[in-house]
Simulated scan of single mutants.
Amino acid sequence: MKNHSHRPLLGITMGDPTGIGPEIIIKSLTDPEIINLCTPVLLGDAEILKKADVNSVALHELVMTDDLNYDFSNCPKGFLVCLSSLNPDVTKLGGPTPETGSAMETYINTGVDLALSGAIDALVTAPITKTGLKLAGSSFHGHTELIAHKTGTDNFAMMMAGPRLKVVLTTIHIPLSQVPAQLTTHEITRIINLTRDTLITRFGIKTPRLAVAGLNPHAGEQGMFGNEEADIILPAVIKAQKEGVDITGPLPPDTVFFHAVEGRFDSVICMYHDQGLIPFKLVHFRDGVNTTIGLPIIRTSVDHGTAYDIAWTGKADPSSMKEAIKMAALQAVNQKRHGNRNGN
């Protein structure tokens, strides 16, 4: 049963129990601003979370059920769904085990199932590692691949989003030497359309202003430094313009992000990972959010890792988790206003 409060019901996965996920979640949920924005449904391990002081946020504890038929209607402060029973001492290990890897995958799968069923309005994920998933025997490298597979989604992309800058990646985790060969006009067109639709339905921007970064220095300088701009990127931009998209490019990568931060563009479409992530983290190192666009569910995440070196020391900064929760709530509200639960 779903919560009838005006606040979105957000599933929050605990992430790697040996990382900083539990700490940043509890720190976030003790912030009155966060509780005023949403009703949290924490998906994790009760004993682990007790070590992170879960009692300070007074969540209503629910036991795992096979049919996922949870009653989320009677506790305005939120819920804790217990999905594993790990030895609390795993928090001292400083890294994942097969047991913790299996548990973190269970949290994600349950969250996706709840979101697909409409029991929750969005999913927020705490950090995991591909090492943990591999130890558990998973065939997935991380959240994005796992959730895309589970939701049957082929048309998705990674957006890194903050108040001043949003970037979307055309290629992600591949060697830089392979990027030119992976770029196609069709793929760039797909990313353009997906970005535009997401900004409308989930960010509430009626007419998104998009920029496309070039691949080469000075966006190729009319072919002096490369032909990818003229041969591959520009045709995608022209096609989008003919379809009514407010889009500019390909623009020199060394200036486009400045103009975006200054408010000229709502999002920059980037050709490769570091092209987008370096300027993004320069601006939003502490408050950036990773959101997977194109999924039939809303999913946001912190933009950092498990930070084993400071896990369970009390030093973890919850800023990115707070922003991920805020963005999930924003997307849920905007999507409901747009009248389309699946968004894209």
Rank of each mutant, 00 (worst) to 15 (best):
Gly44Thr: 15
Gln241Tyr: 08
Lys322Gln: 12
Gly343Ile: 14
Lys322Thr: 05
Ala211Gln: 09
Gly343Pro: 05
Arg190Asn: 14
Phe280Cys: 01
Gly44Glu: 13
Ile293Glu: 01
Pro76Met: 06
Tyr308Val: 02
Thr18Cys: 03
Met14Glu: 09
Arg264Asn: 12
Leu68Asn: 14
Lys322Gly: 06
Gln275Pro: 12
His173Trp: 13
Ile205Lys: 00
Gln178Asn: 12
Thr171Lys: 06
Ser117Gln: 13
Gly288Tyr: 02
Thr306Asp: 01
Lys206Pro: 02
Gly137Val: 13
Leu330Gly: 03
Met224Ile: 11
Gly343Ser: 13
Ala211Phe: 06
Val179Ile: 14
Glu33Met: 13
Gly204Cys: 01
Pro32Gly: 03
Arg299Trp: 02
Ile147Trp: 01
Pro22Thr: 10
Leu83Ala: 11
Phe225Gly: 07
Gly244Pro: 06
Ile310Glu: 02
Thr18Val: 03
Ile293Tyr: 02
Met224Pro: 04
Lys50Asp: 13
Met104Gly: 05
Leu116His: 01
Gly244Thr: 11
Asp266Met: 05
Val333Asp: 10
Ser177His: 12
Pro235Phe: 14
Ile147Met: 00
Ile20Asp: 00
Gly78Cys: 11
Ala324Thr: 11
Met327Lys: 12
Pro253Met: 03
Asn55Trp: 06
Trp312Cys: 08
Lys50His: 15
Pro252His: 01
Arg337Gly: 09
Ala324Phe: 05
Lys242Val: 15
Val112Trp: 01
Asp246Gly: 02
Lys27His: 10
Glu262Trp: 03
Ile278Leu: 09
Met158Asn: 09
Lys130Glu: 14
Pro88Ile: 10
Ile35Thr: 15
Gly152Glu: 00
Gly244Trp: 11
Thr125Val: 15
Phe265Asp: 11
Leu295Tyr: 00
Asn340Thr: 08
Gly44His: 12
Gly314Met: 08
Lys130Phe: 09
Asp66Asn: 14
Ile35Ser: 15
Thr313Met: 12
Leu116Asn: 04
Arg286Glu: 13
Asn216Tyr: 08
Val167Glu: 07
Ala230Tyr: 04
Leu37His: 14
Met327Cys: 10
Asn55Gly: 15
Thr125Lys: 07
Arg202Trp: 06
Pro253Leu: 02
Gly21Ser: 03
Ile12Phe: 05
Gly288Met: 04
Glu23Gly: 09
Ala316Pro: 03
Ala126Trp: 05
Thr153Gln: 04
Asp31Met: 07
Thr291Asn: 02
Gly339Leu: 09
Ala230Asp: 11
Ile205Phe: 00
Leu43Met: 14
Ile172His: 05
Leu282Glu: 03
Phe258Lys: 07
Thr171Gln: 12
Leu146Pro: 00
Asn344Leu: 13
Lys166Tyr: 04
Ser320Gly: 03
Gly305Glu: 00
Lys77Val: 08
Leu146Gln: 00
Pro180Glu: 09
Ala119Pro: 07
Leu9Val: 04
His143Gln: 08
Ile310Ala: 04
Pro296His: 02
Thr131His: 12
Thr255Trp: 00
Phe258Cys: 02
Asp53Pro: 05
Thr144Gly: 01
Cys270Glu: 09
Thr189Met: 09
Met104Asn: 06
Ile233Pro: 03
Arg196Val: 13
Leu114Glu: 02
Thr39Ile: 14
Asn74Met: 04
